[in-house]
Write a protein that binds this DNA or RNA. Structure first.
Lengths: 114, 114
DNA sequence: TCAACACTAAAGTTCTTGCTTAACTATCGA
DNA sequence: TCGATAGTTAAGCAAGAACTTTAGTGTTGA
């Protein structure tokens, strides 16, 4: 497995902002132009554009400009990298709990054998 | 569903740093004292303590001090909140793709009927 | 043609983050 | 008891993040 630390940095960082998550939530329901993503947010359009830039840099969103409209879409496989990291952690601690309970089982049997 | 935006902010933010993810990865394999979490990191002990504080504030880690040793452990259900958010997004865009392909199917049938 | 529209670029400000060093407290073990 | 250990607190600093305003560019439609 390659070192995906910088990617994960950017992904988690991108998702740590409510404005950016709101954009992702909107784009989960389908593509949208910049102005539609920006409209509900309590900030100026340039600020929203900067958030969009963060999402694109993280690989969560791709966009294409046609005429004067830039249409944005979600990049679903980017989120799977995050999921993979979380799943790996869960596998580790579940595995540890399994070992722990197996060990406790051994102790119990040894106690009963006395 | 309550508004968990501030929680998600803290969670994603906490996970956005490689030093903090390294701590979580270590703790996934079992509890550890502060010094063990700090040792592999390329920074001073106080810096590592601050990272630990971020993880605790996010609810990802809990710790207890006994004697002069503070033992830290992972709080697994905190990660599930992150998973829930990601799952909800995936459900949305999958649902959208389903509707889209159903629509395309309708178009195809209408075309064939001509 | 020309005003409105959709976005973009640049610069400046403020707040936050991620460190550092230095000094300090409490506990343990010989 | 006393030095080593494990952690804690505080202060300060540099870089980055999240805005703002201002001033554009290119596109569209009447």
């Amino acid at each position: 497995m390659l070192n995906q630390s910088p990617n994960l940095d950017r992904l988690f960082q991108a998702l740590a902002d409510p404005a950016r998550r709101a954009m992702i939530e909107r784009l989960s329901r389908g593509p949208a132009p910049v102005s539609e993503l920006a409209r509900p947010l309590p900030m100026s359009l340039p600020a929203a554009m900067q958030h969009l830039g963060v999402l694109e840099a993280a690989g969560l969103v791709r966009s294409e400009k046609v005429g004067r409209v830039r249409t944005c879409a979600i990049e679903p496989q980017a989120l799977s990298l995050v999921e993979q990291w979380i799943d790996a952690r869960r596998r580790e601690w579940e595995h540890r709990l399994d070992r722990l309970s197996a060990y406790l089982e051994v102790l119990k049997v040894e106690e009963a054998d006395k």
